[in-house]
Amino acid sequence: MTDPTQALSRLSPLLPLLARFIFAAVLLPYFWASAMTKLGDGIFGVLTPSVGAYAQIFPKAFEAVGYDVSKLGIFHWAVVTAGTWAEFVLPALIVLGLLTRLAALGMVGFIAVQSLTDLYGHGGIEHAATLGAWFDRLPDGVILDQRAFWVFTLAVLAVQGAGALSLDRLLFRSGAPAHPGDLRPAPEGPQSR
């Protein structure tokens, strides 16, 4: 008699592909739209963030200097510029399945910083609905509820990799398999020596 759960366990290699699909369908448009609001004018907009970028990432520091970007330092520019690039590059890497584990870990860090900025920089900590709460029957808290699902999706990719249909698998085929079940014995014969 066969165990029906064994058939389900054979589908586990599809989990990373499904996680990347969900990320592409739900979070890619969100992060890219957010990044677009941070670009400055013209072709060099990727190096000259918009005023809104500083307001989003450093709300209190920006307010303290009277919303004058020229009064902020190189540190602020570097963080805002790197954050903008990260919102474009890391999601693209995840969707393409390229350097997926590293990109997923980078996105987890990005989401942690984003959440802390939302809570303490923008005052979300003062609003119970923004923070949310676990085990409260309400699944719509922005930080604790929604972002927990985001991080879980990314954790699947960080642990399991991009899966079979990915640039990681294509480019790094000789690397370690994504799943222990992918281990196959080497072919026997003179060519294997």
Rank of each mutant, 00 (worst) to 15 (best):
L17Y: 12
A19Q: 03
A24V: 10
K38C: 01
L119C: 11
S70H: 05
P91K: 03
K71D: 06
L28H: 10
G123S: 03
L17V: 06
F31V: 01
I57P: 11
Q114N: 08
T48K: 11
S115H: 05
W77K: 15
V26W: 11
A82S: 13
R101E: 09
F172V: 00
L131C: 01
F172P: 02
L28C: 04
V151A: 15
A176Q: 08
H122K: 15
P4A: 04
E188S: 03
F31A: 02
L167Y: 01
V26R: 06
L18P: 13
D168A: 01
A128N: 05
G132P: 05
L183M: 15
H76F: 07
Y30R: 12
P4M: 04
M107C: 06
T5V: 09
Q114A: 14
Y30T: 13
A103E: 03
P4E: 01
Q56M: 15
S50E: 08
L72N: 09
D3Q: 14
T48N: 14
L119T: 12
A55T: 06
L170Y: 12
P139H: 02
A128V: 13
P190I: 12
V156R: 04
F88V: 08
S192I: 03
L171P: 01
P49M: 13
P187R: 14
T153C: 14
Q191C: 09
A86R: 05
A55F: 13
G42S: 01
I94W: 02
L167G: 01
R101T: 00
I43G: 09
F44C: 02
G181C: 12
T37M: 13
V79N: 08
A35F: 06
Q146H: 14
L8F: 04
A176W: 07
L170C: 01
A129C: 02
A61S: 15
